[in-house]
Structures are given as C-alpha cells and as structure tokens.
C-alpha cells in the first residue's frame, strides 16, 4: 500500500511516516504544494494524506487535481482547523475522511484502514486476528465459527483494537475514538471499562482468548504475545 503524506510541518511529517512505515505502508513525503504536485503527476497512490493549509498553495486546489488524476486514491484531509466548512468542502470535493490536528496515530491508522476497506483495496471486508474474524461489511464477528452479538460500541472497540494490534492505546485515545471529542465528560472512562469487560466476556464465552492487556491501569494493548 502506497501512501503520499502532504504536510508542511516536517516534524509531523516524519512522525506520521515513521508510524505508517511500521504499519507496513510505503510512504512518500511532500512538504510543499509544489513537491506534492510533482509526485502526484508521476506516481499512483492508494492513500493520500493531505494537509489543506500549505504555505505555497491551497490544499483544496490540490484535492481537485488529485480527484482528476488519481481517481483510485483515498484522500484523508488533515487540518489544523476544526471547521465544518472546510470539512464539508473537502468531503464534497471527494475527500474520503477528515481528521483534525492533533490526532492520535492509532486514530489515523483506524481512519486509513476504514478508507482502504471502503475502497476495497484489500479485496476483502474480512479482518482476522487469530480465531477472531470481523466482517466489516455486515458488521458481524465470528469466533471459532460461531457469531457473537456485540453492541455498536463493543464492535467499534474490537475493530479499533484489531486495527491497532500490538499497539499501546491510552484510555483517552479509545474514548476519543468511540465518542469523538464532542463528548468530554468526567465519567467517560468508566464506560470504556464497562464496554471492555463486556467485550472480554463475550469473546471468552465464545471460546476466544483474552487478547486485551491492561497496562498500569492507564492503557490497553491488543496482543497475543
């Protein structure tokens, strides 16, 4: 999977690219409008991460040219502005998703995978992790051949874990993924705990292993190691 990251802040560019490389993506970097334009003319990408505020040009313009020349690519807009206008404009112009700075890398990962699934680049909508298999189209989970019934939040949680397997996730990152940042309440974390426990119970009841490791009471990791 080839990703083009267009981001003028070099530090951010390197962090994102390091992370995505580890996630086995092939990353190309562009820190300016001109560079991005050059690359887009030559190569084909599966995913393009586009920061719409670039010093030498408007990211929205770039989006237009992407949609013309790279019809297959999934585009995720990265913006420093939590602005609905930009979001609607971006999505109208054919962007697949919109993420506001600052974001968790695990969240970015989850968004990229969601776009890839939608675009069907993997050729499948089935995600498997050992004995757990998730059908993202029908939103069903099958463990050792039998389906388990999950609530929406439990399903979202499981998917988030599988996509970010072997990665430490803080409670906050999970909360933000499940409820977005519009809900900023004191007792959010208790719910994560409840949902997590229910999810664990359901997986175990179906004969699955408990892959969710708690880290010092502050974070979780989905792993079989």
């Amino acid at each position: 999977m080839k990703i083009l990251i267009i981001e003028d802040e070099v530090e951010l560019l390197i962090s994102i690219s390091n992370f995505l490389t580890r996630e086995t993506f092939i990353c190309e970097l562009a820190e300016s409008y001109a560079k991005a334009d050059d690359k887009l003319a030559i190569y084909e990408y599966d995913i393009i991460l586009l920061d719409i505020t670039l010093p030498d040009g408007n990211g929205i313009e770039l989006l237009r040219s992407i949609k013309k020349h790279q019809k297959k690519a999934g585009v995720i807009i990265i913006s420093a502005k939590n602005s609905l206008d930009d979001k609607i404009k971006g999505l109208d112009l054919g962007a697949d998703d919109y993420i506001t700075k600052p974001f968790y890398l695990s969240e970015l990962n989850s968004r990229i995978k969601a776009v890839l699934r939608r675009k069907q680049f993997d050729g499948t909508s089935i995600l498997t992790y050992n004995e757990i298999s998730v059908n993202t189209e029908s939103r069903t989970v099958i463990i050792k051949g039998s389906a388990i019934i999950l609530t929406k939040k439990e399903y979202d949680l499981l998917l988030f874990f599988i996509i970010n397997k072997n990665r430490v996730l803080t409670k906050e990152a999970i909360a933000e993924h499940l409820w977005e940042d519009s809900i900023d309440m004191a007792d959010t974390y208790d719910f994560i705990y409840t949902h997590l426990n229910n999810l664990r119970k359901k997986i175990r009841a179906a004969g699955g292993a408990d892959y969710i490791k708690t880290l010092y009471g502050m974070g979780y990791k989905f792993t079989d190691q």
């Binding site: 802040e9 530090e11 951010l12 962090s15 994102i16 390091n18 992370f19 420093a80 502005k81 700075k101 600052p102 974001f103 968790y104 890398l105 695990s106 990665r167 430490v168 803080t170 990152a173 974070g219």
Partner: peptide
C-alpha cells in the same frame, strides 16, 4: 491555530514513546 501544530508533534511523539 499555530499552537495546534506543535501540540500535534508533541502528542505524536509521546504516543510513540508509549509503544
């Protein structure tokens, strides 16, 4: 607006340290 970018850099690096 300018604060968002350094915050992003800091948060990403801290998230990586956790790994």
């Amino acid at each position: 607006h300018e604060i968002q970018t350094p915050l992003s850099v800091a948060l990403m690096n801290l998230e990586e340290i956790l790994q």
